[in-house]
Design a protein around this nucleic acid. Structure first.
Lengths: 364, 364
DNA sequence: ATCGCTTGGGAAAACCTTTTCCATATTGCC
DNA sequence: GGCAATATGGAAAAGGTTTTCCCAAGCGAT
């Protein structure tokens, strides 16, 4: 192993990597021939091919992908630009995305702009220089982000878990509305009639979408929504506890179910209910949103929760991006189905069977 | 904006990006001159420079980084290989790393091997082809991972938040032992004398290191460790609650302080103590580890906790990598200091002042 | 008017690989 | 033995950029 001599290497420098020229020299052939042997391309004697491959192995040769890309049309790289610093929602998406793209031999340049437009522009410039074949943008979800300026529409751009106004862009999001409806359907199906919705700050689009889903389900069941039962606050456990104090502190008829905007609120609510002497799910059923294991499984009892299927979202993003790089034109907003994971906080009985999953219909 | 004609573009294809040849043609100069103008390199008339820059702007020209790297020695990219899927510990590290490298114009290829040695090898091969200038490896921390095989030691490799046996490699880790001692010192300094340690599975090196730090602090204070006070279990809230039941259920003299191996254990313990009618910190002080906001801030009361300063770790990793790319030879295990963040779970009184921070000494 | 210097800009090599086209050598056939 | 056809491998261009080297023109000085 390792046959490259260290003659002339200055202290501290790393040895130059073998080129196809070195391989050709060692095999005693021309570089064109070496290339053909390594790529099984031209018509060569088996003996020659073997010689070249042996030489390449001896030298630990790896073809220089940049030189290759230079006259392929593709660089086989894409950029991922996150606006928010990488958060817990982005991780599963990224993981699935990386997996999907790696299957196609595509590598990912990872950039983080932390909401600084200037840094964002620098990153985009750098990525353009790298000749990425496509760009994937994720951001905090509160606001629609301004579109990325790609000169001359020279490559496909996908916004995932984030949205923009550019009508030519493709945006991939979870179906918050459908997911919420799924949760409330389930609560109603298990006999609850007074379902309250405790959720996060109204500035989030997700909050209004989930509220819509909540209304959808109530309407479908012939129940009339009650304004006392809609409570918006922070995305925190503390708010979940506060909301329970408000809802169960007298003055209004207490709900028999809580659909919470996220798992932290749900967990806070569950804690507060227990501390009030109310049984979950006996007296009040609770369903959260996000299916964040750290919260949902640690809560007492474990929380039923809506799963946004972020892994599937990431995989879909990868597939769409590959399709677009291949020339397909996709645009618009695509919402992918959520699932409901039922655990004890909404079940009649503690269940031991694997939690059933229901899916929202995929909406385009 | 965007002057490149769309003549001859097939449906679905993306327009070719402008090259320096296009710029030169538009400015009426040779490509060599165009290059010099854009890089402020040769001796050119100001007028010529202006013409070239104008042409480049018109065309939205970005130099092809791959072509540039072809005859620079540097590709200005590094690889990041995670072994564990990206977890919550890796995120802050990555963020700081990205920030540090971006400041130096270095881009990151992100790879995830999910513990599959074959996928890992594929990724390394791909990265070698991309001619990355350096490689950064992170992994789950339980075990020392086998070293990455880089043919001919042709580039620097850093293991961050993970360790390997390769004596030539540099490993960057938090100083678990010092961090633990910091926590226990603090408990002792605030008057606690019976400090128990409730921690995670013994297979984790971090568990034994933190235990060492716990012993260090006790010894320093002239307290003799009591074996009943060392409890190892899972990294979960449930285990924190169980441990409290064991420690306070009778049979042994109850401790007056708990130093927990992570924040989840600490939170579970705090909950269990409260439910037993014991005041935190009045009767029992609690300190966690990780300073994971989701746990530490949501606990009642908010948890004092040891912070591993992962952001600093990521930044250090970036800086070391840049130094090594520059030719410096670094190796061995470097442990970076942890901090203690004091909140109410260990304070005498609820404090309103910003939490003080103490740092462990940096050990090399 | 000639020499030498400075200034401005072009030509071409180099970086690494692939691919097309050609040249040589070998074989088969008449 | 001479020809064509095939098998094999080389030469060179292309891809985009930087950089070195060189040439031409303009200038002042003698």
């Amino acid at each position: 192993m390792g046959g490259s001599g260290d003659k002339g290497v200055e202290a501290g420098a790393y040895p130059a990597r073998a080129t196809i020229r070195d391989v050709a020299a060692r095999a005693g052939v021309s570089i064109g021939t070496a290339s053909k042997a390594l790529n099984a391309n031209g018509r060569l004697k088996q003996d020659t091919i073997d010689k070249v491959i042996a030489a390449a192995n001896d030298l630990g040769f790896r073809p220089n992908a940049m030189a290759q890309s230079l006259h392929r049309t593709r660089s086989m790289t894409v950029g991922v630009l996150t606006n928010d610093s990488f958060g817990r929602f982005i991780f599963p998406i990224l993981e699935a995305l990386e997996e999907t793209l790696a299957e196609h031999g595509i590598a990912i340049f990872m950039c983080n702009a932390t909401d600084d437009p200037q840094r964002e522009q620098q990153h985009v410039d750098q990525l353009l220089g790298k000749r990425i074949d496509g760009l994937l943008v994720t951001a905090r979800r509160m606001d629609r982000r301004p579109p990325i300026a790609v000169p001359g529409k020279s490559m496909p751009v996908i916004y995932v878990f984030s949205q923009t106004d550019d009508p030519d862009a493709l945006c991939l999001l979870p179906d918050d509305r459908g997911g919420a409806a799924l949760a409330v359907d389930h609560l109603i199906a298990t006999g609850r009639r007074r379902v309250a919705h405790v959720t996060g700050p109204t500035e989030f689009e997700a909050v209004s979408l989930r509220y819509q889903g909540y209304l959808d389900a109530l309407t479908r069941a012939g129940l009339s929504p009650q304004s006392d039962y809609y409570r918006s606050g922070a995305w925190s456990e503390a708010w979940g506890r506060d909301a329970v104090a408000q809802l169960f502190g007298g003055g209004i008829e207490p709900p028999d179910a809580l659909f919470c905007g996220n798992d932290q609120i749900a967990r806070g609510a569950a804690d507060a209910l227990r501390e009030r002497g109310l049984a979950v799910p006996g007296d009040v059923a609770v369903v959260g949103f996000d299916n964040w294991d750290v919260m949902a499984l640690a809560a007492r009892p474990p929380l039923s929760s809506v799963d946004m299927n972020l892994h599937a979202l990431g995989r879909a993003a990868g597939e769409r991006l590959i399709a677009m790089i291949g020339g397909e034109r996709l645009a618009g907003v695509e919402r992918l189905p959520c699932s409901l994971v039922v655990r004890q906080s909404s079940g009649e009985e503690p269940q031991s069977a694997p939690a059933p999953k229901f899916q929202t219909n995929k909406t385009s």
